[in-house]
């Protein structure tokens, strides 16, 4: 283990420990709720980052797994009488199946076609949940079961969100430094070349999607329980998919720390904005994402973090170059030639 790595792991663990101690000092329910949201969206951004950041596949359909996690947890617990935590695990199971199905459909497509297909699959799920009223209560929504009964639920939710974000962060560190992660980055930089040197893009992307979907599903279950109520239109809203991508891009996609930073900035900014303008605090999302694309393509990390030589060489950010497939062809060259 190199010195740099040892410091990184030690620092990460120390940060985690500190974050777990926060509830000792912070008792205010509002602050705890904001902190909960920061780490839920950090977990979402980190999960998205595996597919969108490291593998460079712009998914705007990650809400599919969020929604499946929320609904599976709620329905398994309420209607089948499962223990709530078993319901959460059931949600992960359903999300993994969904990821296998959605991934094997959408990863056959490239560039904008992939993005559009991810949106389409998430929308199909939203409409099904909305319309299969016998199972899901449809547009009326459902009250969700509590994961943490008792008076200290706020603190418990916060701690759960921090732990989830930590797990997601560990997966990102792994993607940052492992052979598997290099496969993902090779696919991002040039899919055809990656294939030529022996990387199987379809399988590699699917393998990245599985942990991504599982984490997103867990975030969905936690969010559902903390919110006490879910309804298909907002729990499957494309806004959540967008937010996962924005959080990661803002902090720095394709870096492990980026989505965490992005979530801290975005959630705080959105809370401050909410104080000024009651509604429409999402305006800041739109403006931030435009600013990031135009001026900070590497995110905040890409701008300040010149420590890593590897990243500095990639200036102005990993996504600045043209990654698109050949014009007009939405398919992999592999799938048409084989």
């Amino acid at each position: 283990m190199s010195g740099g790595r040892r410091w990184l792991y030690a620092g990460s663990l120390a940060a985690l420990l500190l974050l777990l101690l926060v509830p000792l000092g912070v008792q205010n329910a509002y602050y705890l709720e904001v902190l909960f949201r920061i780490f839920i969206f950090a977990a979402l951004g980190l999960a998205w980052n595996l597919v969108g950041g490291y593998a460079g596949q712009l998914s705007l359909g990650h809400v599919a797994y969020f929604g499946v996690g929320a609904y599976a947890f709620t329905l398994l617990t309420l209607d089948l009488g499962w223990n709530p935590w078993l319901g959460v695990a059931g949600g992960v199971g359903f999300s993994l199946v969904a990821a296998l199905v959605i991934g094997s459909i959408t990863f056959r497509l490239r560039g904008p076609y992939f993005t559009l297909a991810t949106i389409a699959t998430a929308e199909i799920l939203r409409l099904l949940v909305l319309n299969l009223q016998d199972f899901t209560r449809g547009a009326i929504g459902i009250s969700t079961p509590p994961l943490f009964p008792g008076p200290s639920a706020d603190r418990a939710f916060y701690l759960a969100a921090v732990l989830l974000a930590a797990v997601a962060y560990a997966f990102n560190l792994w993607a940052d430094r492992s052979r598997f992660g290099y496969y993902l980055m090779a696919i991002r930089e040039d899919e055809d070349t990656a294939m030529a040197v022996g990387v199987n893009p379809a399988r590699t992307k699917l393998l990245a999607l599985l942990p991504s979907a599982a984490i997103t599903s867990l975030a969905g279950s936690l969010y559902a329980s903390s919110f006490h109520y879910i309804q298909a239109d907002y729990i499957f809203s494309i806004d959540i998919s967008n937010q996962a991508a924005i959080v990661a891009m803002l902090g720095g996609a394709g870096t492990a720390l980026g989505p965490v930073l992005g979530s801290v900035i975005l959630t705080t900014a959105s809370e401050l904005f909410k104080e000024v303008f009651q509604t429409a605090h999402l305006l800041i999302y739109g403006i931030l994402i435009i600013l990031v694309v135009l001026f900070l393509p590497g995110g905040v990390i890409g701008f300040f973090g010149r420590r890593s030589r590897r990243r500095a060489q990639r200036e102005p950010g990993p996504f600045a170059g043209s990654l698109s497939g050949e014009e007009g062809s939405p398919r992999h060259s592999s799938s048409s030639s084989t």
Partner: peptide, 30 residues
């Protein structure tokens, strides 16, 4: 907004127009 990202990846182009979408919708809301 669009011209500066013309040479860039479709990843960035989609994100940019998504930003415009969100900003316009919430501006209308406001």
């Amino acid at each position: 907004l669009i011209r500066p990202v013309m040479g860039q990846s479709d990843f960035m182009q989609i994100l940019l127009t998504t930003g415009v979408w969100l900003a316009l919708v919430d501006l209308a809301q406001l």
